[in-house]
Design a protein around this nucleic acid. Structure first.
Lengths: 198, 198
DNA sequence: ACCTGAACACCGTTCAAGT
DNA sequence: ACCTGAACACCGTTCAAGT
């Protein structure tokens, strides 16, 4: 009967992460306490230290899993169609993420990643923000958008996405107003602010 | 001899804010403690509560003063010249702010503004992000950029600025790489990603 | 009005000890 | 290996009291 969920679970790390993300979403960072987390999961206050040397290490792990999930969401979104439509879908994915996990997004962009977590964190970031570059490269192949290094153009696409997400997740722009702002951003990013002859 | 800095200073609120911003900049949010702050300024741990009912109220005040300063920096930057140059200067101002005050910028976009601080905070935000709209309106008058509601176009300019600042302040992009990213962003925002006939 | 000092419940981190 | 329990120094918040 190994179903009894023995005292040494073995998946404690995962349980802690899941519970932490729940608390983060529902109560914010400052209400996130290692001791409370341990209580929630049913272990002593010091048990988490086997898996996270630090509270910071837990926050790092949360941020990293955030980038991984954002990347996965991106990849699940990236389907066919004209550039503007695909940009719009990517942006909506990002905005949904931002609305659903504002505190997590803040954490992800909070320069807290202790140098320790460097390698895996960097990989997760790279993996997520590679998607806009792929989108760019594909649109270039079709002749939809201008030539140029797809990584650089992709980053400047990512800048727009992150700017939008930033305003939404902070609450400075409501999700409804974000819809308008998104269309406005698509228009200017594709057409340019300089007048066109045509 | 009123110079003796009496026990009831009268400017305690301002002293606390200044010291808090210093700590924020040098040690980050989680090292910011009300009690330590009181010690730094030379009052008892409970004295700050007269000026800030809450730790959250202090953070709100910090964020608000951040928006006010950013707005002032914007206004001090906004001089003459072609649109792209002025956009570049505005962006550099923002990026300098982001590099100098990463933790503060995180705070400003962290959806923590308790509903209490609503009115003044909203005014400070509005005042800051009005500047891109002014830039837009002036460029339109000169026929430099396309027509359209300057507030909406201004917001989508602000989106680019905030996206850039976000990447820089988080450390995901180094200040040097940011310079490149800024030029890339200016190019695409003005010319558009769609190919031009000329 | 503004500040003090004591009290309360909580926190992160460390360490010796158990199985 | 993984978890426990006690200990340490610190925290935010509240409240009666002082001037």
């Amino acid at each position: 009967m190994t179903l009894k969920r023995s005292y040494h679970h073995g998946d404690l790390r995962e349980q802690l992460l899941q519970r932490a993300e729940l608390t983060l979403r529902e109560s914010g960072v400052d209400r996130l306490s290692l001791r409370q987390l341990a209580r929630d999961v049913g272990v002593t206050h010091n048990a988490p230290s086997r898996h996270f040397r630090d509270k910071q290490a837990l926050l790092d792990a949360l941020a990293q899993s955030g980038f991984e999930r954002l990347g996965a969401d991106f990849r699940a979104t990236d389907v066919d169609g004209p550039f503007a439509d695909r940009f719009r879908r990517l942006a909506r994915t990002y905005l949904s993420f931002a609305v659903a996990n504002p505190a997590l997004l803040t954490l992800m962009f909070a320069r807290k990643h202790s140098p320790t977590a460097g390698a895996e964190m960097a990989a997760a970031v790279q993996q997520a923000f590679t998607v806009p570059a792929l989108l760019t490269a594909q649109a270039q192949e079709r002749g939809e958008i201008v030539a140029g290094d797809p990584l650089r153009i992709g980053m400047s696409v990512a800048v727009s996405l992150q700017g939008l997400a930033s305003f939404v997740s902070s609450g400075l722009v409501t999700p409804e107003a974000a819809e308008e702002l998104l269309e406005e951003t698509i228009t200017h990013l594709t057409q340019g602010l300089f007048p066109r002859d045509t």
